[in-house]
Amino acid sequence: MKITPDYSKEFQRIVDIYEKAGGKAENLLRGDVASVIISGNKVLGLNNVRGMAMESSVEGDAVLINLKVAEGAKILYPVHLCVGALEKEGEQRIVFEIDVGAGAVVNFLSHCSFPFAYDFLHFMKAVSRLGKGARVFYEDHHFHSESGGTNVKATYSVKLDTQAHFENRFYLTTTRVGKLEVEMESNNDGEDSVAHLETKIYERADDRVEVREKLFLNAPGASGILKTSIFATDNSYANVINEAYGNAPHVRGHVECTEVVKGDRVQVGTVPVLRVQYDTCELTHEASIGRVNTKQLQTLMAKGLSEDEATELIVKGLLR
């Protein structure tokens, strides 16, 4: 990876944050690992590997990353996306456009860190298109400041061709949230395409979360899962809307939302929306809101853990 000389100090600081967030800095510097490092609205470094072409540009106040994976390419190591900001205040706008050719296989590992944010907006939009039989796994880990001053608006949308397989997992489980709005949308336009969208969040203090996931099953045999798990504590707020639409025959979809609450001041809610057009569509939903499951809690307490310790262990599993 080539680092723009003017940014070498900033690169070091963002890499330090990346490591604290659990990333491996050595992977960002390896020639055989595709990666991009974005700090604020600047691209500090970018590396491509054979089979893919990633370009960056700046449009207005937004960073645009255009990524194309060649037809049939199998990208051996996950593409590392290191995104962050060192500022306390300000905005960051990033747009990812990702085209994955037919039969290609690629994984993404994204870390978004805003450790000093006091009043900072991170706006991210990812638009992906997967060709026939392509497979993509996208894992996004967020780390926000403890002040609660991080404001994230993240939108992910994907279009899937025949037999394409897409998995997106969003995690914000180890730090304060601040304010978070996540929208995920999968358009399963190809027959037998598969989508799995999952969000896991741990809320503290007065964190606010809005999650909206949509699954459009537009071709015969398409299937998908929307899954949201939230642990809400203190005065936090969460609203989850999971929508699944069966717009073609023989599609299958499942919507699941688990919101575990602790304390009497949390405000959480969930709304599942299921609509079908054909009698061969099969859409299901499962939702639960409440304290930690009593039987799980008592099982662990009968082994000597306190209620807090037992809750911590149960939630650790739930949000993994």
């Binding site: 099982t299 262990l313 739930l318 993994r320």
Partner: peptide, 18 residues
């Protein structure tokens, strides 16, 4: 016995490595 989503058997047996 209860199920524990996401929890590994080793974590369960050692009570979260305690």
């Amino acid at each position: 016995p209860a199920r524990f989503q996401g929890l590994k058997v080793i974590e369960y047996l050692t009570l979260g490595r305690r």
